[in-house]
Design a protein around this nucleic acid. Sequence first.
RNA 1: GGCGACGUAGCUCAGUUGGUCAGAGCAUGCGGCUCAUAUCCGCAGAGUCCGGGGUUCAAAUCCCUGCGUCGCUACCA
Length: 641
Amino acid sequence: MTRPAQFFTTPIYYVNAKPHLGHAYTTIAADVATRFKQMDGYDTYFLTGTDEHGDKIVQAAEKENCSPKEYVDQISRLFQDLWPVLNISNNQFIRTTNPGHIKVVEQILTRIHDSGDIYFSSYEGLYCFGCERFYQERELTDGKCPDHGTAPEVIKESNYFFRMSQYQDWLIDHIKANPDFIRPEQYKKEILSFLKEPLEDLCISRPKTRLTWGITLPFDKDYVTYVWFDALVNYISALGFPDGDLFRKFWPTTRHFVAKDIIKPHGIYWPIMLKAAGLDIYNGLNVHGFWNVRGSKMSKSIGNVTDPVEVTGEYGVDPFRYFLMREMVFGRDANFTEDQIVTRINSDLANDLGNLFSRVLTMTNRSCPEGFSNQIPALSARETEYSLKDSALQAVDEFKQAMDLCEFHNGTAAVWSFVSLMNKYIDTREPWALAKDETRRQDLELVLYNLVEGLRVVACLIYPVMPDTAKKMQAALGLNTDNNGLVPLHTIMPWGQTAFGTGFEKPAILFPRIEEKPKETQQVQAKPFKPALKDQISIEDFSKIDLRTGTILSAQKVEESSKLLKLTVDLGIEKRQIIAGIGKTYSPESLPGKQVIVVANLKEARIMGEVSQGMVLAVKDKKKLVLSGVESQTANGKPVQ
RNA sequence: GGCGACGUAGCUCAGUUGGUCAGAGCAUGCGGCUCAUAUCCGCAGAGUCCGGGGUUCAAAUCCCUGCGUCGCUACCA
């Protein structure tokens, strides 16, 4: 009998920054799903990798004084090195700079080009050669490039476009006909609502005069492909499209794990690309939410970008994986704080499971140093009264049901309900009392046997989330761990697999408690995961900025704008018109008379059709912008040092 | 401004298709046990399920509206 197949992927991560918590979560989730499916008898394949082309990479490489290839090698290495640390069991790590991948991208492009869904279209635009980019007319200042002060040239640029609109109705039908195509439900709704608007064709190329770090179009050597075909095709190139064994076996079973920010490319562009290329559509998309850190979205400027390497170093891999799976409702956003991870580790792992493991094995070791005697089955008359079997069975069922739906929080919760039940069971049966009464020797053994059996079930179920701990527990329980902790789901349940006549070692501590919580809090504040500041600049850099005092003379709303105000500012020597995005915090009437600090030598810009000759300084606090002024009234136009 | 969410006990949040849905964990208080990593077990708190309106025999759960928070985006020089 052949085993059913299951293919899981993570997105290929863009190598413009080192891995953070979000990357770790997606990858761990996919890993947990993979390990679960393996338990459930599936033949799995698990793919992750890095996305390495594009303009941003070229720029980043220039900054680092190295070639794009050297740069992407370096960052991609960080990802490749992280996964073993997090116990990720991926079968392959794909890079979009791999020759094999590039070849498949060319094939797909050729197919779709041949079938007529890629067309060439030229358009005229205003192009500034200095900036190497097109400008909209409203972006220009007096018809000139705001950066270079030169008139942009009207040039005709042509690009390749992917005709998506004709597949729109097909996609809507496909999504509706396959309820599992996009999960959870809320994201399916979101995609369908996107699809209510007509789809525009997708620009899929860049001329080599503008971008060289990419894959050359097979049908036009002067162009490289841009983002979509380059990146998404990794999912099939990794499997050896078009005729690899892996491709045939796994492709139809694909489930992609993605974060909610990239559902559009995955939920719309990708299926349409596949359809246009005449390929099977992947099976489905599992969409998860974002991790906020300490209450706000991860961002470099807030300084809360969380490094999974640091967290793992602090708390260990398994606790980290457990926390991520237990705390986030798959699909929704969740919050990550030191306090919460410490609480989870202490209460769920150390107190509930770790302590249970310890107390059961210590008692068993003491009461039955030679192991259980095999008279226990004879006690079947009392089995119902004493058994944990039904609860264990329920835990296994609920676990399986939840894990199948990627409801990892519910899966772990089901296991922990059982753990909690075992703790209650001990309280009720009072094995320490039984141990003092020789006449109740058999009752004692039965109670302990049931508990050891219960631990065995738990040790098997936690494998997808905490593979190391699963193995450790199984070893302590005298089970075979040749398969590194993986025990087939259907073999867990026959109750009574614990061997007779073999004693147990005194157990090691599974999860040490993290003590001194107040101290922890202090440490967190004293040592943020990452410094919040931008790179250092020299005094020369700073002196280039000409800051002056100025007084707002008048202010009015910019029409059709929600937060832009048009200010007239007296700089002493001259008056300036400045457009400022402070309309959410300040009303126009409240501004005249206020003295502010102005960046006086900022290039002119045109915003919403209005000229802006400078910028007023303001402090950004969440969405609020608070103007920065001077401590006491001064003359206008004075330099700020 | 547009699009999308979210607003449930002190805190963090569960509550797919409306009728034991008023819940869990943590924190707090009291009580119990002593096998165990000072762990475990039991009990308690009375929270207008953001406000208002509507649909319904019945709504935290559906519809409308108001307020608040957040994300994306547009116009953050």
